[in-house]
Design a protein around this nucleic acid. Structure first.
Lengths: 124, 124, 124, 124
DNA sequence: GTGGTCTAGACCACC
DNA sequence: GTGGTCTAGACCACA
């Protein structure tokens, strides 16, 4: 997996896990990959992968059974969803609207991009 | 000036300078504040202010006349504008569209937010 | 390491790194000394060593893996080589030819010096 | 006049004056432009022009008659010539030969460049 | 006055 | 351990 610059790698991994949960690839009480498996898969130091799981555990999105592994918490999907929506509305959206305005980009253009995005997604 | 946490101060200062250029408060070949003046004004260490100017000079947004000071480059406004637009289209927009999709937010909702944003802006 | 007066230390360090790359002592994707190691080795302040690496990173001669260290970029050797050649042809050579002309020094004399230089080099 | 980056402007102006003397455009005991005239001509701060003249006066290449102006010293041409030759042989040539070697440029290539240089000079 | 460089020392997040 | 940022203070050459 490739990581983008400004954000910490462990947060990007946490994002990746949340996405799996949101898209229902990993469901409540299902065992998720071990720290080592994840580290190998994403080509990351195990410490970094561990940190992601710790982060998600703190947010009660996953839980740990000692000696067995990590599992998806009940209501994880809802928690992630609420958290994201909040972040989206409070942080991302205002910046986005400001930039639309400064860069003089119309809602129609955004719509065009959105339609293209949905299409390309359905192709895969 | 107040600085927000995650981003480096010197980058926020660079942003500040770019804003001045975008809003045509500082125009082509106009002298901008000296490193020390800026440092005093924004209450930062001169080294930090210097670093901002170095950064902007590397991006060819400002240039230096030896012993005299820093000046706004020709086409600085366009450069800043292009740079921002590129960043918006390549980084911000894809994330935004993905989140719209995951969080199930429609273009109509975005439009509503946008109209509210424009209104609140015009009031000030 | 000893540094000569007119040029900034951090640029001389950058030169030193480039030389290592040109002479293939440090090769593509190989880890180079950490900022602190280099600082100790060359007896300079870590900030100064850092500045050299920053400079070389801007020129895409080295790159950074977060939390791990700096590495030699692919094609670093070519980049350094091209960069030097360009500087030679655009800056050094014109001055040199002008001086040859003004000082009335012939190509034959230069050749004599060159042969002597090569010889003395092979002796060491 | 345009000035190149690494060298101080006042030294480049001194170079300019020396060239005039070497090419016998300004001869022994001839009055050279006043500091102000020179400053206007080269678009430089008078202080900077003054500094060049001071520098050349120290080297006894020009002399000053108070209230009248600066004049070319006797033997100025020889002095400049000797000084340049010395600098050429001790500083410029060794660097040049080393770069020829590193960049793998032959004497034949240098000769080609030299012939082209002489030709272009005769055209003007 | 201007920028430019350097040191020393500190603190931080991240791997 | 790694780099990255920031402050404080100093010194310098140059315009």
């Amino acid at each position: 997996m490739e990581f983008k610059e400004p954000q910490a790698i462990y947060l990007q991994i946490a994002e990746y896990v949340c996405e799996k949960i949101l898209l229902e690839k990993w469901n409540t009480d299902e065992k998720i990959p071990s720290v080592r498996e994840l580290a190998v898969e994403l080509e990351v130091n195990p410490n970094t992968a561990m940190r992601s799981y710790e982060f998600l555990q703190n947010k009660e999105i996953i839980y740990n059974k000692r000696g067995i592994g990590f599992f998806v918490s009940a209501n994880a999907k809802e928690k992630v969803s609420v958290f994201r929506k909040q972040q989206f509305l409070e942080t991302e959206l205002p910046v986005f609207l400001k930039n639309m305005n400064i860069l003089n980009i119309s809602i129609q253009e955004i719509e065009t991009f959105y339609i293209a995005f949905i299409k390309s997604k359905n192709l895969n």
